[in-house]
Amino acid sequence: MRLTTKGRYAVTAMLDLALNAQHGPVNLNDISDRQSISVSYLEQLFAKLRKSALVLSVRGPGGGYQLARAADGIYVAQIIDAVDESVDATRCGGQGDCQQGATCLTHELWTDLSQQIHHFLDNISLQALVARREVQAVSIRQSEQQRLRHDGLAPDTHLATA
């Protein structure tokens, strides 16, 4: 199965946004700091997320991004779809040209698996993820590390780029 960095980062950034929504619009620099994703990559992702009406941008001082609707109405599969990703278990990208231009023996099996995974992700909302204790614990740790870095009490982390 293949889910690229783009899809993973988009879900991570949207979950960060949902976790920090109570403080108002979230700045991409803050998401970048907490999640170790470069700001330029986040800008590319959020342009697609905005185009798909999953986030809204807020301009001006204190601006940033916010969810376009409640977290219980945004699903992981929607996020992955918004950034032009797919969850694909086939080796042919679903094209059916797996074996020298023809469909391979197990093509339908892997296509069915891909559909099942998409259906699974289409039933997990951001709110369901936010409510998980382990997600809350990681979010608290990340926020504390971010606070320490801003206070000069912890080293900067290396930002991942895609």
Rank of each mutant, 00 (worst) to 15 (best):
D151M: 04
G63A: 04
V39E: 13
K48Y: 05
D33K: 13
D156F: 10
H107F: 03
L49K: 00
R59M: 11
Q115P: 08
D97E: 14
L113T: 12
I37Y: 08
D112R: 12
Q115D: 10
G93A: 08
G63L: 05
I79H: 04
Q99I: 10
Q22F: 08
Q115R: 12
D122Q: 10
Y41E: 07
L3M: 05
V135D: 11
I124V: 07
V11A: 02
Q95W: 14
N123Q: 13
S40Y: 09
S139R: 01
D81M: 10
I140A: 02
T111A: 09
N27Y: 02
L15N: 04
Q145I: 01
S36I: 03
V58W: 08
H23M: 07
V76P: 01
L113D: 15
H23P: 02
S143H: 03
S57D: 13
G93N: 08
C98I: 06
G152I: 00
A137D: 15
Q35R: 07
G73Q: 04
A21K: 10
G93L: 12
Q99T: 14
P25I: 14
V83R: 06
W110D: 12
I80K: 03
A18Q: 11
S40E: 08
Q116D: 08
Q136K: 11
M14W: 01
V130L: 10
A47E: 11
D84L: 12
S125V: 03
Q127I: 02
T12I: 12
R91A: 14
V135Y: 13
D81L: 10
T5Y: 09
D84Q: 14
S86M: 14
A68R: 03
Q35T: 01
M1K: 02
D84I: 07
I124N: 08
R91S: 15
G63F: 06
A68Y: 09
D84Y: 15
A10C: 06
G24A: 00
Q127G: 06
N29Y: 14
R91I: 13
R133S: 10
D122C: 05
R50S: 15
H118S: 14
A160S: 07
S139D: 07
G94N: 06
H118T: 11
A71F: 00
L67G: 09
P25H: 15
G64I: 00
H150T: 12
G24S: 01
R69K: 13
C104Y: 02
D16L: 00
A68W: 05
Q115F: 07
I80G: 00
Y75M: 11
P61N: 11
P61W: 07
C92D: 13
A102W: 13
A70P: 14
